[in-house]
Design a protein around this nucleic acid. Structure first.
Lengths: 210, 210, 210, 210
DNA sequence: TATGAATGAGTATTCATTCAT
DNA sequence: AATGAATGAATACTCATTCAT
């Protein structure tokens, strides 16, 4: 090409998304503190100054990454739960499957580790996340559990504690894959891991069939 | 004063431990990047220069914190497993209880979050940890599982995956308590959470009694 | 609308003046370094790019503010002096009064402080100012003094030094009101201050009446 | 010398003074905003980091320069006034002379211009200055004036306004010499200027001798 | 051993200036 | 003429590390 400088593209609409994607990738790869804004800008193909045109600070960028990345998926799962008609256990399976497809396999899978790693430094983000993601996720699982217990499909149990015990291995899976995996630790096999989790749950939750 | 000398003596030998304790506390409280060596030194009551007499760099200090803090407990649990005589499930209960007492309730409980948060930046630490802690912990649980399956106490299952599904909620508990808890998220109730986990496991693992 | 066009027309011609007014206000309020061109443009109701259509740089804008703001008044005072017919002291009073009305009470009153504050950084401005404002002002006062001395109205004196001693309190008044006044310092009372200055001068300058 | 690096001198006691002197010189020469901390450090012969060992920020450094530089002189002039025994006008002369010797001829002479230039940006400094310098200076002059009026040496006058009219030319002299002088403006002749000021004052203030 | 003064590389942030539209 | 997105040089400030004492 004869144009040495394809610089100064006018991309106002596309920019925020590009910046967020670049930032997500780097935050997930290096952690918050170790990510330099120069690198984020470079990866998004803009100058550092441009980045500040869209996000007022590194912190603001981080918050935007979290907020844009995660919340939308919750609504989808809530819709799934609302329209479900089969057994309660099959609802749990469906929710899990959707979560895996929309988060677990994607770049967003790195966010829980980010949250956990930076929660002390960014309390507002952490509480934003707990309010808008964790709490809504717990509510979904809790409703499925209560529904199953009411119908006799599940044994009576301490619902609140059970929610956490169900969710913990899922979060741990993502966290694991974005931390120790990179250091020679053999990767988990997510599908088999999730299957085992579900199988244990089924046995653990469901009332004995006579 | 006659006590001046002994005090200084005791100090000299206690230094590494004091430094490690100070560093652990601060790393756990603020994370690696946000912990300043000035603060570590101040908390240990020495000058920054002295710190470098014992640890060659911030990274070396971090590694020492992790290594000194974690490994010793594993050996204890291995001894417990070796001398156990009851059911396989009661062995799992015993191991869990010891782990909780020696790690879960202590300052060391902050380490898994640290590892997870810094694994990418410190691959050597992460692999040290996986080799010396995770792998040995998984082996312990795996042995108990196999023992139970062999004896007919547990249903046949995919042992490797089950190990992770058993351990994940435990790690998640510690990670949780050192991250989101600080931001208005209601604290988990560790005892009830662990009890629920065990109850689910018992139902999920054990063969039906005729 | 039928008025759309005329408005735009008027704008086009008014632009430089609007920009200069906005710039004067902000330079006076915040000082040169702390004034951002974004703010100047915003206050004038145009984009930053437009500003550069009229002034080639921040420095050029600053120079224009000073030059446009100050020089015109001098000519008026020179005309006053040329047509004066009463006593020399009453000429000094007249000049002072006009200066106060046209500069001292207006937004231009902030300029001397600006000049003083930025003289080192903008030597050209400073010399422009000394040549076109200070020198002409001193000449006016000097002429009045010489006239009074010649006529015997004033005592003989070192005219050059006396000029400065007469002017200094006037400049100081403006500088004062644009600096320390903003910080809890009780405002001067310009009228009384000027009156006192004149009274002292009258006694100090005028030959004793027998 | 064979030592290529005479670095890392241990100068804890001398440092603050050296840094303050360097900062005073540069602030006076270039103004606050245009002074770079690198340059201050370089002029003091230390690294930038060292500067931050003594002053927490550029602003703190600026404040220290002002506070250390100016206040001490006031006390001296207060002592002179307290022990004075001659005429009130000779007291004014003495105060003026001391002020000129301790401030007017020294590097500190640049401070009033600094204050005036930065008052809007640093209101705390400006009010510190007005309280600790201006107010005390005015009190000194005011006391001398009142004393002279009471004794009949001076004509009755508006003391408060007269104070300002006396002080203004002095401040203006310093401000002038640190601003316009650098740009081709012929320097004032301070001695002659001060003499003229005093002569005018004497005629203006003193009661006619019969 | 222990100190703490000194260093300087590293980075977030600002803002005057440019230029494609 | 007017816009406003994009640029990048400039700079205050931090903190791990060194070293003379």
């Amino acid at each position: 090409m004869s144009t040495a400088k394809p610089v100064r593209k006018r991309r106002k609409e596309a920019r925020p998304g590009e910046l967020l994607a670049a930032a997500l990738a780097l935050f997930v790869e290096k952690g918050y503190a170790a990510t330099r804004l120069d690198d984020v800008a470079a990866r998004a193909g803009v100058s550092k100054g441009t980045l500040y045109l869209y996000y007022a600070s590194k912190e603001a960028l981080f918050k935007a990454v979290i907020q844009e990345g995660i919340v939308p998926v919750l609504a989808e799962n809530e819709a799934i739960a609302a329209s479900h008609e089969g057994s309660s256990f099959s609802l749990l399976e469906k929710l899990l499957d959707h979560w895996w497809t929309r988060i677990g396999c994607t770049a967003f899978a790195g966010i829980p580790k980010l949250i956990v790693a930076e929660a002390q430094n960014f309390p507002e983000i952490a509480s934003y996340y707990t309010t808008n993601v964790i709490a809504r996720g717990r509510a979904l699982v809790g409703a499925a559990l209560s529904r199953g217990v009411s119908s006799g499909e599940f044994r009576p149990c301490d619902v609140e504690q059970t929610i956490d015990v169900i969710i913990a291995p899922l979060l741990m899976l993502l966290i694991w894959e974005h931390s120790l995996v990179h250091c020679g630790q053999p990767a988990l096999q997510p599908r088999a891991y999730l299957a085992t989790h579900l199988a244990l749950l089924q046995r653990g939750l469901c009332a004995a069939r006579v």
